Amino acid sequence: MAAQTYHRTLISRSRLNTPRGKRAYWIALGIALLTATAVFIFPFFWLATGGFKSSQELVRTPPVLLPAHPSTHAFTLAWDRLGMAQLLWNTIVYAGGALVFQLVFCVAAAYSLSKLRPILGNWILAAMLASMLIPATALVVPQYLTVLDLPIVHWNLQNTPWVIWLPTVANAFNVFLLKRFFDSIPNDLLDAAAVDGAGPLRTLWRIVLPISRPILGVVSIFAVVAVWKDFLWPLITVPEHETLNVGVNTAATSMPDNALIGGLFLASIPTIALFLVFQRNIMAGLTVGGVKG
């Protein structure tokens, strides 16, 4: 039997194993967890309760944690004045289209780089990763000029869903995540499919994609959230078909504070619900590609 090794810590293992040490450990751990939870949850708590308060309660000093007379009037006012049903539909269309395009093109790019091994594949991947070093704001002007006059076909894509969908197609980070996962798939499995007569596309559809659900879930969440939270690009490209973020910001100067906070809370619910439902997929997808069994 190999000798068991211990890591040096501030408190020795023998002291931690005593009843007093265990009590102190669990108390310290509980305080740390409660403090971290309060720090992360308090902004959302303030946002959720702000819509139930009056405008006077929101600006009162010292702040009021809970409303004295809760009312849903601010939420209904925000929903009606903002036209949140239309804003929500616009955002769903943009996010859904971006999701479909990213899944199709990012999966195809990652699969070809991982398993088909094209010429200069490593250089292509390196160039894609290098593009992540460019700040997104530096690309706004050239992207905007491009969508105003699309090369070759000379189409103006402004105020169309394509102006949101097309720039999101080539996502280097998602291609990298997918490639890392595809690299972990044994080549013997693909060789067996080739022996049975399956081509590259059939192998991708029948074998690779079914076992890639965790990472596909992660990429899907990233694609939806990226469009959902984007502000600058929809502001300048689709002013006639606003997203939730742009619509709430546009009406911010003409709405009471409690109605504005209520609208922000309603706009944040879909992404929060998406995370709570698929949080297991996020962790599984981010870790499974780096572990080989």
Rank of each mutant, 00 (worst) to 15 (best):
W79K: 02
V218W: 02
L87P: 00
W155T: 06
V291P: 01
L82R: 01
K115I: 00
A127N: 04
D230E: 14
I261C: 00
L125E: 02
F181Q: 01
R180V: 05
Y94W: 12
I211H: 10
M84F: 10
R60L: 13
S14Y: 05
L266N: 07
F101Y: 07
I215R: 00
T237Y: 07
I185A: 08
T72W: 15
I221T: 03
W155L: 13
P167S: 03
H241T: 13
P118L: 08
P214G: 06
N187D: 11
A192V: 11
L216C: 05
N245S: 11
T271Y: 10
A226T: 06
A109S: 09
T18F: 12
M84G: 03
I119W: 14
A127T: 06
L201Q: 06
V147S: 01
F176T: 02
I134Q: 11
V224S: 03
T137S: 15
W228H: 07
L264M: 12
P239R: 06
R117S: 10
M255C: 04
T137V: 13
A110W: 00
G263K: 03
V153W: 15
R23K: 13
A28Y: 07
R15Y: 10
P186G: 14
R23F: 15
N90P: 03
G50V: 02
A2M: 10
A36K: 04
F101C: 09
N249C: 01
S71W: 10
S220W: 08
G262I: 03
P270H: 09
K53W: 09
P70S: 07
M132S: 08
V175F: 01
K22T: 06
T91P: 01
S212R: 05
T37M: 12
R180M: 12
L260S: 02
K22V: 04
I215C: 02
Q279N: 14
V219R: 01
W162S: 03
L235K: 13
D149N: 14
R8S: 14
T271I: 15
T72F: 15
W228F: 12
L82A: 09
L33K: 04
I152R: 10
A223Y: 01
V100A: 12
N156F: 14
P161M: 13
A36C: 07
G285T: 04
I272P: 03
V225I: 14
T49R: 05
L157N: 02
A130W: 11
A24L: 09
G293H: 05
L133V: 09
A38K: 04
F275T: 07
Q158K: 10
L47D: 03
